[in-house]
C-alpha cells in the first residue's frame, strides 16, 4: 500500500518523523486499543499497553523491513505487549494465568467502563476460559472482523489452522453458554 510505504519512509526520516508518528497514532490508535482491550479487558491496562506499543513501534521502526504490512507488524507488537503484560501481572500476583483470567472477568462487574448485561458478562466468562490462541483468534475474527489472511500475517499461523481454532472456539463458547 503506497500510503503505508510513505508513512514508513517518513517515520524513518528524522525531519518528518514527528508528523508521521502523529499520523500513525491517529490512524491506528482505535483499532489497536480495541484489540488490546479485548485481551486485557480493563481500560487502564489497555491504555498502558497501547502507549507501550506505540513507543516500541517508534523506537523500532528502523528495524521494520517491510516484509509484512505495517498494520500486521503493529498488531503483532500489540499482541505480544498485551500477553507479556498479563504474564507479568500473574507473576506479580503469584497466581496462574487461568486464575488471572477469572479475576479479570470478575473485576469487570465493578468496572465503570463496562456496562455489559448478563449475557455479555457470560460471554466474557466463556471467552476467558478459552486457550490463549483460540481467544485471540475469536476476538480478532468475531469482534474485530479481521480477515483470516490478516490474522494469519499477525499471528504467523496458517489460514487453515486459524479456521480450525475459530471453529473450536465457537464450539466451546456455544457449549459453555448452553450449560445454564
Amino acid at each position: 500500500m503506497i500510503v503505508e510505504e510513505t508513512l514508513v519512509h517518513d517515520l524513518k526520516d528524522k525531519a518528518k518523523q514527528a508528523k508521521a508518528f502523529e499520523v500513525l497514532v491517529n490512524t491506528y490508535k482505535e483499532r489497536l486499543y480495541w484489540h488490546i482491550r479485548r485481551i486485557v479487558l480493563n481500560h487502564d491496562d489497555a491504555d498502558d499497553v497501547l502507549q507501550n506499543t506505540f513507543i516500541k513501534v517508534y523506537k523500532n521502526i528502523n528495524g521494520f523491513k517491510g516484509d509484512s504490512q505495517l498494520f500486521s507488524w503493529m498488531y503483532r507488537i500489540a499482541t505480544n505487549e498485551a500477553l507479556t503484560f498479563l504474564k507479568k501481572k500473574s507473576n506479580k500476583l503469584g497466581i496462574s494465568d487461568a486464575e488471572l483470567q477469572d479475576r479479570m472477568v470478575t473485576n469487570l462487574q465493578a468496572d465503570v467502563y463496562f456496562d455489559g448485561d448478563e449475557i455479555q458478562m457470560k460471554l466474557q466468562e466463556a471467552i476467558a476460559r478459552l486457550p490463549e490462541k483460540q481467544k485471540l483468534v475469536f476476538n480478532m475474527k468475531y469482534f474485530q472482523e479481521l480477515k483470516y489472511e490478516e490474522i494469519s500475517s499477525i499471528l504467523n499461523t496458517s489460514v487453515g489452522g486459524l479456521k480450525a481454532s475459530y471453529h473450536l472456539a465457537v464450539k466451546k463458547l456455544e457449549s459453555f453458554l448452553k450449560e445454564d
Binding site: 482505535e30 480495541w34 481500560h43 506505540f54 513507543i55 463496562f114 458478562m121 460471554l123 474485530q144 472482523e145
Partner: peptide, 23 residues
C-alpha cells in the same frame, strides 16, 4: 469503525483525543 464495537466495553470521555500527547 466497527472494530470498536464493544459489547459492553466503554472508554473514558475524550480518551483518544488526549492519547497523542500522552504517548
Amino acid at each position: 469503525l466497527l472494530s470498536s464495537k464493544s459489547s459492553g466495553f466503554l472508554v473514558p470521555d475524550a480518551y483518544f483525543e488526549g492519547l497523542n500527547s500522552k504517548i
